[in-house]
């Protein structure tokens, strides 16, 4: 039971940090789920996060996988509700207010100011994730190739990511990684 409360507390807190996308919450997610509560190891967190990028819909459904690891179906449901309810309510009420704020002088300042901080948080998440995922030069090449491909073409990201997984298996087969 205590674990469910911990899950609820952790994911409700993490949800408030997802400004600019789920990646912004990644540094704290690693800190709490790996280092503080030991629910998953860092490689497991990376695996769930990357699998989550292949699942349809909002790209942080991996919180359900962490919930399953901790406390099966109840854990998954608690993690999901905790992760989506607080920000959901905030969006619901602020969304109704927002149009009334259309002429508020501080609105553009908040939008631009928070925007750059959000990009900074996503960059921090990318650095922390990169440190865990790019353990060898080959994995750096995979990341760079996916980046260039997605940056320069309009290909669905699911294809290069599945291809990365297959290359990972090939590297394993040839004993390279």
């Amino acid at each position: 039971m205590k674990q469910l409360w911990d899950l609820a507390g952790v994911f409700a807190y993490l949800s408030l940090l997802t400004i600019g996308g789920g990646m912004a919450a990644f540094p704290e997610m690693k800190e709490l789920t790996v280092d503080t509560y030991h629910w998953v190891t860092f490689p497991e967190l990376l695996h769930f996060y990357s699998l989550g990028q292949l699942a349809p819909g909002p790209n942080m459904m991996m919180v359900a996988s962490i919930g399953v690891t901790v406390a099966h179906i109840p854990g998954a449901l608690v993690a999901l509700v905790a992760f989506f309810l607080p920000t959901g309510l905030l969006t619901f009420f602020v969304g109704r207010l927002w149009t009334h704020l259309a002429t508020w002088r501080w609105r553009p300042a908040i939008q631009t100011g928070l925007g750059s901080v959000a990009v900074g948080l996503v960059l921090a998440g990318a650095i922390i994730m990169g440190k865990g995922a790019i353990t060898q030069v080959f994995f750096g090449v995979i990341a760079l190739a996916v980046f260039l491909l997605l940056w320069r073409t309009k290909i669905n990201p699911a294809y290069p990511i599945v291809a990365s997984g297959l290359i990972g298996m090939a590297l394993h087969y040839f004993n390279i990684a």
Binding site: M23, P43, L46, H47, Y49, S50, L51, Q53, L54, V122, G125, A126, M129, G130, G132, A133, I134, T135, F139, G140, I142, A143, L144, A145, V146, F147, L148, L149, L150, W151, P157, P160, I161, V162, A163, S164, G165, L166, I167, G168, M169, L171, H172, A177
Partner: peptide, 17 residues
């Protein structure tokens, strides 16, 4: 594990984009 490690590297590329 090898597959998941591969897609984790790919996901880093996705985040950079």
């Amino acid at each position: 594990k090898a597959f998941l490690h591969g897609i984790a590297a790919g996901a880093v590329g996705l985040i950079l984009v």
